[in-house]
């Protein structure tokens, strides 16, 4: 640590901002990484990937029972057929919410998450609090996040790993039966596919 008391952490060699700049520059100079490739990768993760991809799968599963069965029994095969590929979805399992059963997803060790279906995880998903507490006291955590479940609803917590990523198939909200695919998909929030919320009402 430096002796001077400096309020600006940017001047501290331990700051992650400084260390990231040093790392990137060194690797660029060595020709190991490339700034324009980094730009386009970041761009893709910021704008092209997101929960809309998972939401379309959920919406279709609501409309087509055959598609839903296939998604539940072999999500990997469905993703291959739908040409949905990318990092972090080598093996995906879909967990179905139904009356009396609610599923919620966590990664207790780090931040595993189905990127190609939901984008990058939100900050709270990666936080030590969520990772530790949702396993210990899921009902309380969900309640704090605004989701009150019936006392007799069983909560199943799924711990993601390098081998398996999970997607929750939320219950279809009442009154949405006649809607088209795009309107249905708009009801499927990211949080409902992690299992910390229900799908929106139409």
């Amino acid at each position: 640590m430096t002796e001077t008391h400096d309020h600006s952490h940017e001047t501290n060699a331990d700051s992650s901002e400084i260390r990231t700049a040093a790392l990137e520059d060194l690797l660029v100079e060595k020709g190991i990484v490339d700034r324009s490739r980094i730009d386009s990768l970041v761009e893709r993760f910021e704008h092209d990937l997101g929960p809309m991809i998972g939401a379309r799968l959920v919406a279709r599963a609501w409309r087509e029972s055959d598609f839903q069965s296939r998604l539940i029994s072999d999500a990997d095969e469905v993703l291959r057929q739908e040409n949905i590929r990318g990092a972090e979805i080598e093996h995906v399992e879909v967990k179905v919410n139904e009356p009396g059963i609610h599923n919620v997803v966590v990664c207790t060790l780090c931040s595993c998450y189905p990127w190609a279906l939901l984008g990058l995880p939100p900050a709270w998903y990666k936080s030590p609090e969520y990772r530790a507490r949702v396993v210990r006291e899921p009902r309380k955590v969900l309640e704090e996040m605004g989701l009150s479940l019936e006392p007799d609803t069983e909560i199943r917590v799924w711990d993601s790993s390098s081998e398996t990523r999970f997607l929750v198939l939320p219950e279809q909200p009442a009154g949405s039966e006649g809607l088209g695919l795009e309107d249905l998909a708009a009801l499927v929030t990211r949080d409902s596919m992690i299992g910390v919320a229900k799908a929106l009402n139409p």
């Binding site: 992650s16 990231t20 790392l23 190991i32 990484v33 980094i38 990768l41 970041v42 993760f45």
Partner: peptide
């Protein structure tokens, strides 16, 4: 800086 840190890792994985 967070996006750069992510992007550096993503590029290293890609290559």
């Amino acid at each position: 800086w967070q996006s750069r840190a992510f992007g550096v890792a993503a590029d290293l994985v890609d290559s």
